[in-house]
């Protein structure tokens, strides 16, 4: 821990430690070296969120590297949450990228296994999976707190990184989800961002279990929200996205309004969720994944009543 008492001193860490309800966003880097395109996606999030997740070749589709896009955000005065998957890097590249990210001023990192390359646009590729996401969390923590690589060699200047992990409260087998969350926290996850939540009933149960297990006192859990743009999108997610739980009632609710009004109905549902999360025991904030909808974030943040974002020194 640094002299300031912060692990990395990221804005997200400060906001969470000060006890504010955090609000994070997400941005997928472009399918090219187009910095202008990245700026178009990230600029609407300025002052609207505490940190912006930068996805790492999400769904195994090749895009600008998440480290480079994160560094571009730092240069533009925005705070990235650098996502790193285990699919494409062995422990040599992982540790090197953690050092590089820290050197570039990146202060948050989200540790993920990564979608299998079968989903993406290079299904012929070889994957790595040298270590898994829980080991990745432990490695980042060891590098930061002990100043050591996996092999116990000393690091001359440890990285300053606020360590995040993902949790899917709806993945199977359900008996194990809270335990898996506990494993991630034990490994060193400072914060958790959940998979998009649609089934509020199941999420309430999951949070209750997390609170009962004493997990919420050891980490900061941000509830994942992705507004549905249409009933079609809801249907698609229910059917084709593994590990996603979209209740039929929600699909019905979206279908119940005129096609032109479905996006608004999706936002309304998201706003109701955020309102509930603000009150829910153990929930420290919301992670808003407005996929290809970055320009709508200011409006959603405004209507969710999370503005202005707190400034903590």
């Amino acid at each position: 821990m640094s002299d300031s008492g912060y692990k990395s001193g990221s804005n997200l860490e400060k906001v969470l430690k000060a006890g504010h309800f955090a609000f994070t966003g997400e941005c997928g880097p472009p399918k090219g070296a187009n910095v202008g395109h990245l700026k178009e996606k990230m600029e609407p999030l300025r002052d609207m969120v505490d940190a912006i997740n930068v996805t790492d070749n999400q769904t195994a589709v090749v895009r600008m590297s998440s480290k480079a896009a994160s560094a571009l955000m730092v240069m533009a005065g925005l705070e990235p949450n650098f996502q790193m998957v285990c699919r494409d890097r062995n422990r040599i590249a992982i540790q090197s990228d953690i050092l590089g990210a820290s050197a570039l001023g990146i202060r948050n990192m989200l540790c993920l296994s990564g979608d299998h390359q079968q989903f993406g646009n290079h299904p012929e590729s070889k994957n790595v999976f040298d270590i898994d996401s829980i080991q990745l969390i432990a490695v980042a923590k060891k590098m930061r707190d002990e100043g050591k690589f996996i092999n116990d060699e000393a690091i001359d200047e440890p990285p300053k990184i606020f360590i995040g992990a993902a949790s899917n409260p709806f993945g199977d087998p359900w008996q194990f989800r809270a335990h898996r969350l506990a494993n991630k926290i034990d490994a060193g996850a400072d914060f958790i961002q959940t998979q998009c939540i649609y089934n509020m009933e199941r999420f309430r149960e999951f949070m209750k279990q997390a609170v009962d297990m004493g997990l919420t006192g050891k980490t900061h859990i941000l509830a994942g929200v992705t507004p549905m743009k249409s009933a079609g999108m809801a249907n698609y997610m229910a059917k084709f996205v593994p590990g996603m739980d979209v209740p039929q009632e929600l699909i019905k609710r979206l279908k119940g309004v005129d096609k032109k009004m479905q996006a608004e109905e999706g936002i309304k549902f998201a706003l109701e969720q955020i309102e509930e999360f603000k009150q829910m025991e153990g929930v420290a904030g919301v992670h808003l994944m407005a996929i290809e909808w970055e320009h709508r974030v200011p409006e959603i943040a405004e209507r969710a009543g999370v503005l202005p974002r707190p400034k903590v020194d």
Binding site: F129, D132, D172, P173, G243
Partner: peptide, 26 residues
């Protein structure tokens, strides 16, 4: 495990099947 995870299952596990295909056991 499609990702050789020593700490599984990943978030893609659904109904006992692996995220890569409904034909593949998780």
């Amino acid at each position: 495990c499609s990702k050789s995870l020593q700490h599984g299952p990943c978030g893609g596990s659904a109904d006992g099947k692996c995220e890569i295909s409904k034909e593949t056991e998780c």
